[in-house]
């Protein structure tokens, strides 16, 4: 196996606030290799963005407590972006790692033309005049499937539709040929039809640039098409981590099972009621002892000795390449897995 491009080890991110410390991400470890797509899935507030913003170095260091490591294995040698000086990390942003965000409507500067904004990104790491930058911008727009790119570089963000703006964001993120692309819910704000086009584009771009891609989403349905591996997050922690098929057909965590049974499926016609997980995730301030998912877990009573309430489960390898943060045994989990809602096993 090749060395992964990004190695995140025991990353913790928390925000001191007046009400207490918000433990937004805890004990996050994962790898992504070039050419590979890792999906990060979880409900709103589970810490998906916070942990990845830490990798990008986009948190305000003065107001955020960050510990752990995040190594980028660059050609020039590995760099830990968590402990590296701010200036070092800045010079990796846009060049070695890039990020696109959920809302393309507000992610572009309203006063500058698309060409200006893309060219600014390109010129940061390339010698060239502004008109070279605009030319390069037009090439990129063309690459991401924006028709009439040479003319449209001169236009402003408000003249583009949501889907087109997300294409622009992708073009801008990729203009310096980064090795890692973090896409934070890139399709959430878009129409359903446009969503699949953008996902398709991301997949094409990944092939084109041979990037490591982290796709953040709260929609497990999206993941199936694009991801190689999945991290499921809940209340700031990774609760399950496995290859895409293992997650879909053989989930080993009650939370993931809940998520899966709430996906609408085409192979189940005829009024199958979608389940949603009842309840709310816990507050991230002063998390209670035990498993964070306990208050919403159907199976907590099956664990002997009230362990779910007293001791926090660890992220354990329960099957090959498959880790889960749950006190239940693999046998129990397999038994509880409501395979009927997920269709047939492969």
């Amino acid at each position: 196996m090749t060395t992964p491009f990004l190695e995140v080890k025991n990353l913790n991110v928390s925000f001191p606030t007046e009400d207490g410390e918000v433990m937004a991400s805890q004990d996050i470890s994962f790898n992504v290799a070039l050419g590979e797509t890792l999906a990060i899935v979880g409900e709103s507030g589970s810490g998906k963005s916070v942990s990845n913003l830490a990798v990008m170095g986009l948190h305000n260091r003065a107001r955020t407590n960050i510990s752990g490591e995040a190594w980028l294995n660059l050609a020039s040698g590995p760099v830990d972006v968590i402990s590296a000086p701010e200036e070092t990390v800045r010079r990796l942003r846009g060049k070695s790692m890039a990020m696109i965000f959920q809302d393309p409507m507000s992610a572009l500067h309203p006063y500058y033309s698309i060409g200006d904004q893309l060219s600014e990104a390109w010129r940061l790491y390339n010698e060239g005049s502004k008109s070279d930058g605009i030319k390069r911008a037009a090439q990129m727009l063309d690459l991401v499937g924006i028709p009439d790119a040479a003319r449209r570089v001169q236009e402003y963000p408000h003249q583009f539709s949501g889907g087109m703006r997300q294409r622009v964001m992708i073009a801008m993120a990729l203009i310096n040929n980064p090795s890692l692309l973090i896409a934070d819910e890139p399709t959430t704000a878009l129409d359903v039809t446009v969503q699949s086009q953008i996902l398709q584009l991301l997949r094409d771009m990944q092939k084109e640039f041979n990037m490591a891609v982290i796709l953040i989403t709260h929609d497990l349905g999206v993941v199936a098409e694009v991801a190689d591996r999945v991290n499921v997050m809940y209340a700031g922690k990774i609760v399950e981590k496995a290859g895409i098929d293992s997650i879909y057909y053989n989930s080993l965590h009650p939370y993931t099972m809940g998520l899966l049974s709430s996906i609408p499926r085409v192979d189940q016609l005829g009024g199958h009621r979608l389940k949603t997980i009842p309840g709310q995730p816990p507050s991230l301030i002063g998390l209670p002892a035990g498993c964070s998912f306990r208050s919403r877990c159907e199976f907590a009573s099956n664990v002997t000795g009230n362990l779910c309430a007293t001791s926090a489960p660890l992220l354990e390898i329960k099957a090959p390449e498959h880790a889960s943060r749950c006190h239940l045994s693999v046998e129990q989990l397999n038994e509880f897995n409501p395979s009927d809602v997920r269709g047939t096993h492969k």
Binding site: L92, R93, S106, H109, E120, Y125, M169, A173
Partner: peptide
């Protein structure tokens, strides 16, 4: 705290340029 300022940071621009230009 606008999204487009976060975009500018993600591009790798320095704080000075972000303040002045964006």
């Amino acid at each position: 705290s606008e999204d487009f300022i976060r975009t500018a940071k993600a591009k790798g621009l320095s704080n000075k340029v972000i303040l002045r230009k964006h």
